[in-house]
């Protein structure tokens, strides 16, 4: 009886646990956040009351929110574009070489073995102004006269945290793009060469179309991940100096966790979700077009 049911409705039965998990772990927080965002929900035991849109109003009229949103975008764009570019470059190089491929692949993967807390700790140590080895060596070689304030100078802080993020994220791009490079049939290149296509043209018309679908998917996953990432910046600068590295998750954290105001922080979450959903929608449209081109 059960066997028959499973046999007939296999898809439904198989999907059910995943749906349950997704719905429980996703619908629940979304529903509760939407609900809280219209209330004065606080952890300090105040009577719950509806406050309409005033949480949204308070967030949207706070100039710091826009600063945080802008910082998040800058952080995401710098991190993502460099990760993609360097990852692509490394993948091409790895695909090209004939010896030591395994060795280089392992070496390039190293940053990925670092838990985030060790990433931030290690880089804070390396870049420290008083006893960091980076400043130490630069001073020793006479390249700089005073230590560079990587994390304390508002001009450098955002670049520094972005680059640390790039360091951490490049391996993922490199390995995935390498994998997709390896699926390109070699005879395509040979045929193109016989037809007299230049290296640039071969890249443009053979390599790129093959790689960009997987790259597109990676970009979506990483955009979301970077946009939402909290620990890297929080552990390295806490949003400072000034407001130069305050991102939306840090902004929301200060509301929700330290002011005990779930209502306010839920409103930030919902706004962030709307923004991300919009970005993903755009990505999906582009991805659709690319997929169509590939299948043609």
């Amino acid at each position: 009886m059960i066997k028959k049911f499973v046999n007939r409705h296999m898809c439904g039965v198989f999907i059910a646990p995943a749906c349950l998990v997704t719905v429980l772990l996703l619908a629940y927080p979304i529903c509760i956040s939407i609900f809280y965002s219209f209330t004065n929900k606080s952890l300090l035991g105040k009577p719950l009351k509806f406050v309409g849109l005033s949480n949204y109003q308070a967030v949207l009229s706070n100039p710091e929110f826009y600063q945080a949103l802008w910082n998040t975008i800058v952080y995401t764009v710098i991190s993502l574009s460099l990760q993609l570019l360097l990852g692509f470059l490394l993948a091409l190089a790895l695909n090209r070489i004939t010896r030591f491929q395994g060795l280089f692949r392992t070496l390039i993967l190293i940053p990925w073995a670092f838990p985030m807390i060790i990433v931030t700790f290690t880089w804070s140590y390396l870049l420290n102004d008083l006893y960091g080895i980076v400043n130490g060596k630069l001073l020793q070689w006479g390249l700089i006269a005073r230590p560079i304030q990587f994390l304390a100078d508002p001009r450098f802080a955002m670049i520094t945290v972005s680059l640390v993020n790039v360091w951490f994220g490049v391996p993922l791009f490199a390995v995935n793009i390498l994998a997709s490079l390896q699926t390109i049939p070699k005879d395509l290149y040979e045929a193109a060469q016989i037809d007299g296509a230049s290296a640039l043209m071969r890249f443009r018309f053979i390599t790129l179309p093959f790689v960009r679908v997987i790259a597109g998917l990676l970009i979506i996953l990483r955009t979301i991940w970077i946009f939402n990432s909290f620990d890297l910046i929080f552990l390295m600068t806490g949003g400072g100096p000034g407001t130069s590295t305050v991102t939306v998750p840090i902004f929301a954290y200060r509301m929700g966790w330290t002011l005990y105001s779930l209502g306010r922080s839920s409103a930030v979450t919902i706004l962030l979700l709307l923004f991300l959903a919009g970005a993903c929608f755009l990505y999906f449209r582009i991805l659709d077009r690319w997929e169509k081109e590939v299948s043609q």
Binding site: T22, L25, L26, Y28, P29, I30, I32, S33, I220, L221, I224, W225, F227, N228, F230, V248, P249, A252, Y253, G256, W257, L262, S265, S266, V268, T269, L272, L273, L276, A277, C280
Partner: peptide
């Protein structure tokens, strides 16, 4: 839809979870 489930920042999921 599965990709979308990634969108919630973990720092804000933590309390509801």
């Amino acid at each position: 839809v599965i990709v979308m489930t990634y969108m919630f920042p973990p720092i804000l999921l933590a309390i509801p979870y």
